[in-house]
């Protein structure tokens, strides 16, 4: 464990908590893409299959449980909570995210480190996580006015990925055998997707204006 990875995990945890806090307190999911949340739930479900078989550390197991419970409860809130669901803008959240699932699965079948069920599901979850933010970014472009909790949520997600890249650089130099090209490339692609959001987020923060994404 290194500081970059710990900071990355904490930032990731914060992003989920910000989202849960937003939905639970103001009972609204305005501006949040259900499709991105469903993709994240699927990412965690396929990545943490080894939750009960491979014990790595208490921290690892605890965090996996938190991410699983929070991502599925966010999906439940937006789908089924009688008040929250009313604020879900399904007409705007139209990204066909099922079109992301199949290519990621096929890619995982072709490019993986080991051809085993667990490894393929793990690789699939990596590729899926890289593109899972797309419905949310498309929704932000559409709705234009981004409330600051949603903006903070996406910002924290981007920060978590950036910190993970620093973690991989650190591990590459400190652990001789640590080479995971698949993780690094899909992680890099994912972080690049946030780049333009970051740019506009900092612009709005610097000029102290409301965050607006170009149409």
């Amino acid at each position: 464990m290194n500081i970059f990875r710990l900071a990355g995990d904490m930032t990731h945890l914060a992003s989920v908590l910000v989202l849960l806090l937003k939905i639970h307190t103001i009972k609204s999911c305005a501006g949040i893409s259900l499709k991105t949340q469903e993709l994240y739930a699927l990412v965690f479900a396929t990545r943490y299959l080894d939750l009960f078989t491979d014990y790595i550390s208490l921290y690892n197991t605890l965090m996996k449980l938190i991410f699983l419970v929070s991502s599925f409860s966010i999906v439940w809130y937006i789908r089924h909570h009688k008040i929250v669901r009313r604020s879900y803008d399904k007409d705007q959240d139209t990204f066909r995210h099922y079109f992301l699932v199949l290519p990621c699965f096929l890619l995982a079948l072709v490019i993986n480190e080991k051809f085993t069920v667990k490894e393929i599901m793990w690789t699939f979850s990596l590729y899926l996580e890289a593109v899972a933010i797309l419905p949310q970014l498309v929704l932000l472009q559409r709705t234009r006015n981004i409330d600051n909790l949603t903006g903070q949520y996406v910002f924290l997600l981007g920060a978590y990925r950036s910190l993970y890249i620093l973690n991989w650089i650190y591990r590459y130099f400190t652990e001789p055998h640590y080479v995971h090209w698949i993780t690094w490339i899909s992680g890099l692609v994912q972080t690049l997707l946030y780049a333009d959001f970051f740019y506009y987020y900092f612009q709005s923060w610097k000029n102290n204006v409301k965050l607006e994404l170009p149409a």
Binding site: M1, D50, I56, S57, N60, M63, K64, E113, W122, T183
Partner: peptide, 10 residues
């Protein structure tokens, strides 16, 4: 320790 594991990251 958890460094040796293949997929020890979240």
């Amino acid at each position: 320790n958890d460094e040796s594991n293949d997929h020890d990251e979240l």
